[in-house]
């Protein structure tokens, strides 16, 4: 993890358009930003495009960055916005998949009392969500957007954002509860059901 002083030096170097500072900044933050891009896109190839485009914007507009905000948060916002733009561009080529069409777990997980899951399982579960639901969930839960901001960014109603978040959350909880229940019933088996579903 880069310290704040090193990050400031990298920012100053990028403002001066020093190639070494730009490469160092990319090496330090590209992993996290790439994970964010993957969550907001359907495929890894799309995530790579979003990442490259996001770094172009970062290097171009880094002079407008103010020190009183988190630099990582600023970069992540750029990635999310770029992913949303990418999503809008390709929206007409995709078929909207409703949450009801997703393969649901057979067990009734309404009575689950606890959830135990790993980051990989959560990633796989999120990857199964339709793109619209996934985008709303990631923007609200991970990136910290408000419903009004999400509605403005995606061009949907606020209530639509709330309903999509609720459905996405319930679906993830069911999937993760299923994985957790199977792990409890058969502790020897690894938690790879989410991966097998994807």
């Amino acid at each position: 993890m880069a310290s704040s002083e090193e990050v400031k030096q990298l920012i100053e170097g990028c403002k001066a358009q020093r190639s070494f500072a730009q490469q160092e900044l990319y090496a330090r933050f590209s992993g996290q930003l790439f994970a964010t891009a993957i969550r907001h896109t359907n495929a890894r190839e799309d995530a790579e495009d979003v990442l490259q485009e996001s770094f172009v914007k970062i290097f171009k507009h880094i002079k407008s960055y103010r020190q009183d905000f988190s630099f990582e948060g600023w970069m992540r916002r750029i990635v999310v916005n770029t992913a949303i733009t990418h999503y809008r561009k390709n929206l007409k080529h995709r078929h909207h998949q409703d949450i009801s069409e997703i393969h649901a777990t057979p067990r009734d997980l309404e009575n689950h009392t606890d959830l135990e899951f790993t980051a990989d399982e959560l990633e796989h579960a999120i990857a199964q969500l339709p793109l619209g639901y996934r985008t709303v969930f990631c923007m609200f839960v991970i990136e910290g957007y408000r419903h009004q901001e999400i509605a403005d960014q995606l061009g949907v109603d606020v209530n639509t954002s709330k309903s999509q978040l609720s459905r996405a959350r319930k679906y993830l909880q069911r999937v993760l509860a299923t994985l957790s229940a199977r792990a409890q019933s058969n502790p020897s088996e690894p938690h790879d059901e989410g991966a097998s579903q994807s």
Partner: peptide, 23 residues
């Protein structure tokens, strides 16, 4: 979910030549 995913990192592809601005 936020705690697990916000700091999660994935091996990113190398930076493309076109990513860097050309001073």
């Amino acid at each position: 979910c936020r705690e697990m995913l916000s700091k999660r990192s994935v091996d990113a592809p190398p930076m493309a030549n076109s990513t860097l601005p050309e001073p």
